[in-house]
């Protein structure tokens, strides 16, 4: 879904020749790109293309070997602690503590992000109301249906109004309606100015992004809106675009 305002665009993520090398192996090879405020940016690649390594650097969890990047105005090499305070993270695999209740999870994460007790109370009430989960607030998270967990996890990931939220394969395995409800939440957050950085290898998730980059063997081989990429690669679907690029990959996905 395209939602690009063409006036002045504030850069929220900027990478310049960002590189990570492990011994002889260059996992992420001099990638450069910019992501704008309120944009939903899809970060695609086959298994082993270097997505996870790149994302770890952008989250301040791994120091670049060469090149540079800023996230929310902070340098990933020298200001990683500040970056961590200004981003949210959610993945389908791990997001919430199953043995804590809904309210306890909210309180826990909000506390980690340094919100004050009155703010946490206020945010919790608003969040429960927005998700229509007031009656479930004392239920253990493990008892919730997957779709509810995902919506709750996303709401918690942005509870501190981060500049960027990183979403790692956020909607695998949920039904088509819950998936849409989830993406509507992402659009709503983007509309309020939060940038969403989405890594996925599912093309149907990619189609929901404003712009997409595709990594092959550590490099960004394509970047543009889904429509532009389909035109550029003369393909009817994003799946096709991806296959045309990724088929040339030399690396075995490991």
């Amino acid at each position: 879904m395209n939602n690009i305002a063409n006036n002045q665009r504030e850069v929220v993520i900027s990478a310049t020749n960002l590189t990570k090398q492990f011994g002889d192996f260059i996992a992420t090879n001099a990638i450069s790109f910019e992501v704008y405020k309120g944009e939903i940016f899809g970060f695609l690649g086959a298994n082993g293309a270097g997505k996870t390594t790149a994302m770890k650097m952008l989250c301040g969890l791994s120091t670049p070997s060469r090149g540079s990047a800023t996230v929310a105005g902070f340098d990933v090499s020298t200001e990683s602690e500040k970056i961590k305070k200004n981003i949210g993270y959610m993945s389908q695999k791990f997001s919430l503590y199953e043995d804590l209740t809904v309210t306890e999870n909210i309180r826990f994460y909000a506390g980690i992000y340094g919100l004050s007790i009155p703010v946490i109370k206020e945010k919790t009430a608003a969040l429960l109301q927005q998700l229509n989960m007031e009656s479930q607030k004392n239920v253990l998270v493990k008892a919730l249906p997957l779709g509810w967990k995902q919506k709750l996890a996303f709401s918690i990931a942005i509870i501190h109004d981060p500049a960027v939220v990183f979403l790692d394969e956020p909607t695998g395995g949920v039904d088509p309606i819950t998936r849409r409800e989830f993406w509507e939440m992402i659009y709503s957050a983007a509309n309020r100015g939060t940038t969403a950085f989405v890594t996925t290898h599912y093309m149907d998730e990619a189609e929901y992004c404003n712009r997409i980059s595709i990594m092959v063997d550590g490099k960004i081989e394509a970047l543009g809106t889904p429509s532009d990429l389909k035109k550029e690669f003369n393909s009817a679907t994003m799946d096709d675009v991806f296959l045309k690029l990724a088929r040339n990959a030399k690396r075995i996905g490991d």
Binding site: M1, N2, N3, R180, W183, E184, Y187, S188, A190, N191, D204, E207, Y208, T225, P226, S227, M238
Partner: peptide, 29 residues
Amino acid sequence: IRSNKMYQLLHDLRDDHLVQAAHIFGEDI
């Protein structure tokens, strides 16, 4: 359908009952 303001478009289509069903679908609604 698509327009220059996609998030707004979804709400306008629903709130004004222009259609019975409106769902986001990748780049389109």
